[in-house]
Design a protein around this nucleic acid. Structure first.
Lengths: 215, 215
DNA sequence: GAATGAATTGAACGTTCGTTTTATTAATGA
DNA sequence: TCATTAATAAAACGAACGTTCAATTCATTC
């Protein structure tokens, strides 16, 4: 046997990516073998090496493209510069949760498999992550400066929010009793309270809460 | 060679546990080899099998004892039943962050290596985790019933808080610019706002924030 | 319809893995 | 002091690992 009937390089590569994301998310990069991955795709192990030179290259490619897609998604979703900080934060939370719920497996890979990367590749992924997180820090700082937020420490608050809203992929399952919209609205309400967007003197807290309860 | 001078079973076992927690936290369970672990401890690979029958047994033991220690820590730290929900939540957050910052490596192992466990052992660890998380859900529900908290969904809020306050181990480093106390107070303030403990009509929010800023 | 390149197989390489077995030495207790 | 037990070393096991290479077949082009 050799080349199989109907074989197509671009289709095979896509199948490898899809299978790899799912397998690595479930079992971890170290635990997934090239033979296991090949079996899932329906090819022989050697065929994988036509598309990715090493096992780590495959992992790195998946992670880098996921991070780039996340940054691109935020670039499309963010409001104009003249929007107020609460609108910007709302857009950030909404985009983040939607993006991550649509790509639970890929997010798991990008968050959990950093230690399987070589030093310079780790640096690349962390730089992309920092680019994304800086967007949130900017929103928080602008809102705090404008007196809209109550924030003790911008960097710490940004980490706390990121951890909280990314954590949704840990417990969310497709058959969840709450819809994606309900979950998003709920996390948004919590984030706005957490940032003091509903602090005394502002009516935003009450409005948000009422919206959630009646929606 | 055979038994070495000064060798002591209980000391060797403790050394294996310590080295295993650190290595697994850094590289992952699959990536750590028994030879690597033995070298770190300073014994031959075969010596490990006197203390743990298999590699997975070692991992499971570390995870189970960590979860049991976490539950025990909360049992000692929790206030009386007649304490109000805000005091209970404060105690929970404070205990959680202190415990996790003291055991960053073990927490990493318990949170990240679940997929390396067999089905029934996974169930055991998840049951322990559920026991712990139920304590938080109780606090949130009691506080919401008493009108002290504003919570849309108890289970979801509990997950969000757990993710947020456990996430501290991801970015915290021993040389952090903030002290453990500062970090704890900051997370506590965020959690109280998130749960609406500073909702309009309550003066708790303002008090907490002022305490943090002046402390 | 022959030539050329793309896609894949099948087999094998050397290495490393978790684990087992056996022998040997150090500590312990009568 | 002498048997006994605890603690380890040394060596080896078969299996599985990531990866390579030559051979082979399908698709495409002229």
């Amino acid at each position: 046997m050799a080349r199989t009937a109907g074989s197509d390089g671009s289709r095979t590569e896509a199948a490898i990516r899809d299978a790899a994301v799912e397998l690595i998310a479930r079992h971890g990069h170290e635990a997934v073998t090239m033979r296991q991955l090949a079996a899932r795709v329906g090819v022989q192990p050697a065929a994988l090496y036509r598309y990715f030179p090493t096992k780590e290259d495959l992992l790195f490619t998946l992670m880098r493209e996921h991070m780039q897609a996340l940054i691109a998604a935020w670039r499309s979703a963010r409001p104009n510069n003249d929007a107020d900080s609460i609108a910007a934060l709302t857009a950030f939370i909404t985009n983040h949760i939607r993006f991550h719920l649509e790509r639970r497996h890929a997010t798991h890979v990008s968050n959990m498999e950093l230690r399987s990367l070589s030093a310079d590749r780790l640096e690349t992924i962390l730089a992309l992550r920092n680019t994304y997180e800086t967007a949130l820090r900017h929103i928080l700082r602008q809102g705090a400066d404008a007196g809209l937020f109550v924030i003790e420490d911008t960097a710490l608050t940004a980490m706390a929010i990121i951890q909280m809203i990314t954590g949704v992929i840990v417990w969310f399952r497709p058959d969840e009793r709450l819809s994606v919209d309900e979950i998003t609205q709920n996390y948004l309400a919590m984030t706005l309270r957490l940032t003091g967007a509903g602090a005394p003197g502002s009516n935003i807290y009450v409005r948000q809460d009422a919206e959630f309860r009646t929606g």
